[in-house]
Structures are given as structure tokens and as C-alpha cells.
């Protein structure tokens, strides 16, 4: 199925296969979340232990970068990790494409990271947050702005390029070498999916942490 082919319309809005895949991922994640958390207890079973381990690990990872504010960032960063991993691995399912292999999706995620950086920065420091663009000298403002744009584009293109190339390579190898040959490449796909998700989420976390700590470093310099 063509990724950007419109499957159906909701009013004037054309719904593509990628959006439907994303909805499917959301539905699966929503149902799974509801199912595994409907009967949590203080004495956890193996499933609950694994679930708590995953959430705690993500929280600890965020806390390692931004101590004391892990709970605030957990929903955004953890959802990035989970969604991108699942979206990356979706490409392994026959007849489905990874949503992250589409530039519109990765650009949307990158724009969300771009906006969340400023959102968390303003929440943390108010409008003084923007002062860091003038630091250490206002002459660097253009470079700061270029940096903001380029790192967002890089975020989107990095994920898109890696996942798309993986799928293309797997497809080419499948076409050239037969049915069983692409399997090692599919194993690489799993590793790459995890690594790219980690990189995207970690970069987002670092950007947000930089924004939240920018005013603190300004205060530190003044002191």
C-alpha cells in the first residue's frame, strides 16, 4: 500500500494508510495499557514486574539527565520511546509500513519536540527562557535560531532516513535474494528500531533538559 495514498476521507480530511497504522498502534497501546494496568497490586506478578521495570527504567533514564523533574517529562519522552519503537517495528509486519519511515510523521514528532522544548522552558522559567538566545552575546541569536531549526530538521530526517533505508534495503534484498535471506536484515531492523527510538527520545530529552536548565546556567553565571 502506498504510504501517502488516501484510504478514505473524514469530511475534507483525507486519511492515509500511515495515519490508520498510527491509529492502530494507538489502539493497541491503549488497549494493552488498560489491560495490564486494570488489576495492579502491591504484590506484583511477572507481567506487572516487567511493566513496572520498563516504566521505572524510563523514569530513571530521564532522572539521570534531569534530576527531580522526571515525572514531569515522563509522559512525553516515554511516549516518544514507546511509540517510535512500536512504529519502527511495525515495518516487520507484512503489508504494513513503519510510520516513522514517513517524513510527515517524523517531522510531526520533531515539531512536537521543538514545541515541547519551548513549552517546558517557558514553564520552567517564564519568558526569561528566551533570554538564553541572547547569551552569551546577542550576536549569537541567528546562530541559536539556525540551531533550533536545523536540529529539528535533523531529528526528523535522521529517524526518517534510517527507517526508510532499512525498509528499502530489506525490500531490495528480498527482491534480489529470495525469501529467507532478508531475515538477518530483519534482525538488524529490530536493533535499529530500538536504537533509533532511543536516540530520538534521548535527543528530545537533552533538548528539553537544555531548555529547562538554560536559565539555571544563566543564574549560575551571574552568581
Amino acid at each position: 500500500m502506498e504510504e501517502n495514498a488516501i484510504v478514505f476521507y473524514i469530511g475534507p480530511i483525507g486519511i492515509t494508510a500511515i495515519v490508520i497504522t498510527t491509529w492502530g498502534i494507538m489502539l493497541v497501546l491503549g488497549v494493552l495499557s488498560w489491560f495490564v494496568t486494570r488489576s495492579l497490586s502491591l504484590k506484583p506478578g511477572s507481567l506487572q514486574t516487567a511493566l513496572e521495570g520498563i516504566v521505572s527504567t524510563m523514569e530513571a533514564g530521564i532522572a539521570a539527565v534531569l534530576p527531580g523533574q522526571a515525572r514531569q517529562l515522563l509522559p512525553f519522552i516515554a511516549t516518544l520511546w514507546i511509540y517510535i519503537v512500536i512504529a519502527n517495528l511495525t515495518g516487520l509486519i507484512p503489508q504494513l509500513h513503519s510510520p516513522t519511515g514517513n517524513l510527515s510523521v517524523t517531522a510531526g514528532l520533531a515539531i512536537l519536540v521543538f514545541l515541547s522544548v519551548h513549552w517546558f522552558g517557558i514553564r520552567q522559567s517564564g519568558m526569561r527562557y528566551f533570554k538564553h538566545y541572547l547569551s552569551p552575546t546577542p550576536l549569537l541569536l541567528p546562530f541559536h535560531l539556525i540551531s533550533e531549526v536545523t536540529r529539528t530538521i535533523a531529528l526528523a530526517v535522521r529517524l526518517f532516513g534510517n527507517i526508510m533505508s532499512l525498509e528499502l534495503v530489506a525490500l531490495l534484498v528480498l527482491l534480489v535474494a529470495g525469501l529467507l535471506v532478508p531475515i538477518p536484515l530483519l534482525m538488524l531492523h529490530i536493533v535499529e528500531a530500538l536504537v533509533q527510538a532511543y536516540i530520538f527520545g534521548m535527543l528530545a530529552l537533552i533538548y528539553v533538559a537544555g531548555a529547562m536548565q538554560s536559565q539555571q546556567s544563566e543564574k549560575g553565571k551571574q552568581l
Binding site: 483525507g14 492515509t16 495515519v19 494507538m26 491503549g30 509522559p75 512525553f76 511516549t79
Partner: peptide
């Protein structure tokens, strides 16, 4: 690049954040 997909993906992700 599809702007509709781009916008829907943003909305979807925000909804997914809320769901999770």
C-alpha cells in the same frame, strides 16, 4: 510530505500521550 498526515500525526501523538 503530506501536511494532513503531518497535522494528524501531531494530534495522534498528543492523544497517545494522554492515553498512555
Amino acid at each position: 510530505f503530506d501536511w494532513t498526515t503531518f497535522l494528524l500525526e501531531i494530534i495522534n501523538f498528543l492523544i497517545l500521550i494522554w492515553i498512555l
